[in-house]
Amino acid sequence: MTFSVPIKRALQDFRQVETWVFDLDNTLYPPHSDLWPKIDARITAYMAALLGLDGMSARALQKHYYRVFGTTLSGLIHEYQVDPTEFLRFVHDIDRSSLDPNPALAAAIEALPGRKLILTNGSHAHALATAKQLGIDHLFDDCFAIEHGDFLPKPHLLTYQRFFERHAVDPARAAMFEDIVHNLEAPHASGMLTVLVKPKHGAEDFREAWEKHEGVPAHVDFATDDLVGFLAKIVS
């Protein structure tokens, strides 16, 4: 297990945690996986067909919406009132067979005491299919997907508040695992323990440049590039 920086809280602080919350994409599976590039390509194709744009123009607009609105879907809903159900069904219709099951991750999650939940900007169907491919779907009590937050994505505080209410989560007794730094701001402000899951040094990383962060800001309590090892250390 590698900590990117000296930890700011003691691992003993996790003893108070009764709800373990995990982001999905690039957190429960690593950012060098080809799943996100597959989804990304289908978003571009959807926008090109919807707006009659060439691939380069569609991709540029896609990335603009993603940066400004938090998800491309939010931008399309705001600007073009697209049907979010249709969009999510199309962009998450991918082959997940390249993602290997992760029995070590399954064992580490199973060993955590308390509830385990997924909180994702993806669809519920995508979360379930991906967790199943990883061999961890049976370990989670539920999933709060983008549709459960009325398509308002992380990092909006209201999305987390809706998540807390829907699942009766006490933030002071919960921990959030996430790969994007700014998605941990609201959880930290709400009282959650925050863990930034970073890619291993030198590993391929398909995330956007603005999603990556070299340092670890004050709202991040822990940072690790080894999720399995980190979880194992918590319960040891």
Results as ranks from 00 to 15, higher is better:
residue 51 L to A: 13
residue 98 S to F: 03
residue 213 H to Q: 12
residue 195 V to W: 01
residue 67 R to Y: 11
residue 197 V to P: 00
residue 209 A to G: 02
residue 188 H to C: 05
residue 232 A to D: 15
residue 171 P to T: 01
residue 197 V to K: 00
residue 230 F to P: 00
residue 172 A to D: 11
residue 108 A to R: 06
residue 104 A to T: 09
residue 93 D to M: 11
residue 96 R to F: 02
residue 114 G to S: 11
residue 60 A to K: 12
residue 222 F to A: 12
residue 156 H to C: 12
residue 146 I to G: 06
residue 57 S to C: 09
residue 190 S to R: 01
residue 138 H to E: 13
residue 138 H to F: 07
residue 63 K to P: 03
residue 102 N to R: 09
residue 116 K to A: 08
residue 235 V to Q: 13
residue 215 G to L: 09
residue 151 F to C: 10
residue 9 R to V: 01
residue 52 G to R: 13
residue 78 H to G: 03
residue 100 D to E: 14
residue 206 F to N: 11
residue 157 L to C: 07
residue 11 L to N: 08
residue 43 I to Q: 08
residue 58 A to Y: 05
residue 93 D to N: 15
residue 155 P to Q: 12
residue 163 F to D: 01
residue 22 F to C: 05
residue 66 Y to W: 12
residue 76 L to Q: 04
residue 132 K to M: 10
residue 124 H to R: 15
residue 5 V to G: 00
residue 129 A to Y: 09
residue 92 H to E: 10
residue 112 L to Y: 01
residue 130 T to L: 10
residue 73 L to N: 02
residue 43 I to H: 03
residue 16 Q to M: 04
residue 115 R to F: 01
residue 138 H to K: 14
residue 87 F to H: 03
residue 166 R to N: 04
residue 136 I to Q: 00
residue 215 G to H: 12
residue 197 V to N: 03
residue 55 G to M: 11
residue 25 D to L: 07
residue 91 V to Q: 02
residue 234 I to Y: 02
residue 157 L to A: 13
residue 192 M to T: 07
residue 146 I to P: 01
residue 161 Q to K: 15
residue 104 A to M: 11
residue 42 R to G: 07
residue 52 G to P: 12
residue 15 R to A: 15
residue 12 Q to K: 12
residue 130 T to M: 11
residue 123 S to P: 06
residue 149 G to P: 01
residue 135 G to A: 09
residue 4 S to Q: 14
residue 178 E to T: 00
residue 117 L to K: 03
residue 135 G to F: 09
residue 37 P to R: 12
residue 223 A to S: 15
residue 169 V to Q: 02
